[in-house]
Design a protein around this nucleic acid. Sequence first.
RNA 1: GCGGACGUGGUGGAACCGGUAGACACACAGGACUUAAAAUCCUGAGCUGGAGACAGCGUGCGGGUUCGACUCCCGCCGUCCGCACCA
Length: 875
Amino acid sequence: MAAERYNAPAREPHWQKVWEERKVFLTRDDDPRPKYYVLEMFPYPSGRIHMGHVRNYTMGDVLARTKRAQGFNVLHPMGWDAFGLPAENAAMERKTDPGKWTNGNIEVMRRQLKSMGLSIDWSREIATCHVDYYRHQQKLFLDMLKKGLAYRKASRVNWDPVDMTVLANEQVIDGRGWRSSAPIEQRELTQWFFKITAYADELLEALQGLAKWPEKVRLMQANWIGRSEGMLIRWALKGKALPQGHKELEVYTTRPDTLYGASFLAIAPDHPLAKAAAASNRELGAFCDECRRMGTSVADLESAEKKGFDTGILAVHPFDPKWTVPVYVANFILMDYGTGAIFGCPSGDQRDLDFARKYGLPVVPVVMPKGGDAAKFTVGDTAYVDDGVMINSHFLDGLDTLAAFEEVAKRLEGQKLGRKPAGKRTVNFRLRDWGISRQRFWGCPIPVVHCPDCGVVPVPDKQLPVELPDDATFDRPGNPLDRHPSWKHVACPKCAGKAQRETDTMDTFVDSSWYFVRFTAPGAKTATDRKAASDWLPVDQYIGGIEHAILHLLYSRFFTRAMSETKHLDGLKEPFEALFTQGMVNHETYRRTSGNHKGQWLTPAEVRLDTDGTARRAFLIDTGEEVEIGPVEKMSKSKRNTIDPDDIIGRYGADCARWFMLSDSPPERDVQWTEAGVEGAARFMQRVWRLTDEAASRGSPRGSPRPGSFSPAAIELRKAAHKTLDLFWRNVEGLRFNVAVAQLHELANTLQGALASKEAGLEWAIRECGELLVQMLGPMMPHLAEDCWARLGYNTLLADQPWPKPETALLVDDTITIAVQVNGKRRDELTISRSAAKHEIESAALKLESVVRAIEGREVKRIIVVPQRIVNVVA
RNA sequence: GCGGACGUGGUGGAACCGGUAGACACACAGGACUUAAAAUCCUGAGCUGGAGACAGCGUGCGGGUUCGACUCCCGCCGUCCGCACCA
């Protein structure tokens, strides 16, 4: 009698309830077993989970469940990255409250995640928008302020004049606001910053120690931090155009060796000297204004012409008081890199060369390739940017680039301009301090008060938290906190006079920079419980999208250091021991090709697919018209190629979705969601259910004594099972889930073959194989595995079973098959004892008929025998 | 422009340290069961030639190292990603 079909959607809630009731996944801090902290990046509560979440959380869950079975005390928590602009937009559009909207989304998504059967300790759930979380963040901020790690300064920001808020660089697309499409303005605003640059060197250095991070992410961070070694060089200024109080100009360069090739200085339009000079030069002022209006987008920069404006100011060459070069204001100089001023050496830098040609400035070659002829070497349209030998450079002539750098550095450091040395070796970083002020409502309030008499006053600890008001209005753009009738008006904590709260809130990346710490003690009265934090951290395995390679992961690394500095952590520096970045979930796109709706995107549900031989065609179900099958793209609302996890779980079960997400594609690569793939997963589930059923009835009863000896077929079966067990864990540990899945497929095939076999004496091995298969399936398809476990006669929970250990004796074979090559070409294979000596293998190989034929009577020159691997006959 | 990754059957992919390329799955074809279908099970298959045994070719392209290369080295081509007026 065949087993009934397994009804996953009906069974899964049952097991979820059992796990919850028996508190199977609750984590205790006082558990003496070794800890393992596995964390997936927490979701933004946008409304519903998507397939990317399913993939991400399934991977983490496989690790968490396996590690748990292996005897680790596993921490696997979940929370919500719950502040952010979408809640405000929703409030504006739907006349609701951001908090209500967010909490409603959390409800829905929590239910969805629970329906996935994740082994999460839900008692540790946190949401960053809850005051119990952000009150501690305010404390962290104040402590950072005390340490000088948070500070205020005026800076230029992207300002959206329609939404009336600052936008991050990422939110400016082609010079326009991502939401409003309004042209973005550059505004000078006073903002709060975190001093991440104080850790620039350390954040860069420590990347080398992150051995379990993807090389790619480490590289991206290294490039982002952008360390360069160079010099600050001060130039004396003169000329009639020189504004008062500007006697000198400091430039930053990585090529002091090319100093004798200098033909101009250039400064940023926002440079203080430029501003001062513009005050008395209307044309220059107009030029600077024009530069400021220039867009900041990639396209703008690429097409923008390199332009300069001669200020009339002259700079004196550090090595020759009689030599002066003009000072230009140039549109391509960035105020916030280096000193906002450069010296141009046209022969050694392409951009400087273009500039010099345009404005008729001298081009003196100072570096030529090694072995070149100084008399003949010239620079035409292409600058020589590589290292080489110095020429036309007085005392530097003949030195190589590196030596020239050192010589110039030595001389300038010893030479005075005014009272100070004329030059200084320095290290410069691309990394900027982290601007965290946002003119938005739905974020963590920055806990300071502005007092007309006392200035910026931190909110005293006693007065924390600074809570968001619950009666803000969202009927018009701008910051609801700022226009709230009463919220910002408070007494100054210092002088008790009339004062105003800071109305900016923190960037939401602040929230996610320490949530992994909070999970270690989610109910602590202080921000952290240092004991719990040092017991649990660092996170042993962190899993998330590559899109956070820089921002979130760099900020978290900084924050961990800052929290150690402010004593919220016990000296921890790196939060994430191992990082894994998973690929996206993609789907085919479909669109109409004709009629009034040409170009309209169609959802997968609206389309019927037909396979005609190997050609695939798609038809609109409603009308029958053929539609175009477009490229496979990331699931997105705009292309309408999304699949709702709820639908899949409701139809096939969570285990099916989980299994499919783990199958086929390597986890770091994109995976293509296909109906056929899901159905394949569903079929496999039925097959497992059937095989377990047969193994339970055909195999020997549970607990029956192990036979003294096994038949050859039984040994083969046992070997297959134990080898799979061995490989399975190695592949899971290496996060090669797709390979682990393939191994289970293979074992299922083997078990099926054994069940079909008429041979007697397999009962015990069949039973064992079935149980091992179910145990390995457990972390991947936990619900099905529980049912199979019960079908095998157990009344325990599979989730509570220890991980089985492979019998090492079964992992090695007595006889092995090795390939036999003739002249590097495979001709045959040889089955021989594992311990066979070289000469035995050699003579056996030479006797093979196909080898003899391939040699064709030629003389055997050499035979390479690699025991247990290969034989290669060279003839 | 700079930096990086990748390129294997019809498709997704596997191959640990240089040692039998194509595991496993999807799709496909043939067969069994069935009145039929679904479900399930069995079989086949890199390409070319051959009835077949077998032979030749084959991991983007061209070279190289090696007894032996998907794997290492050099040079191209293509795709994707990150950064980008960084002095």
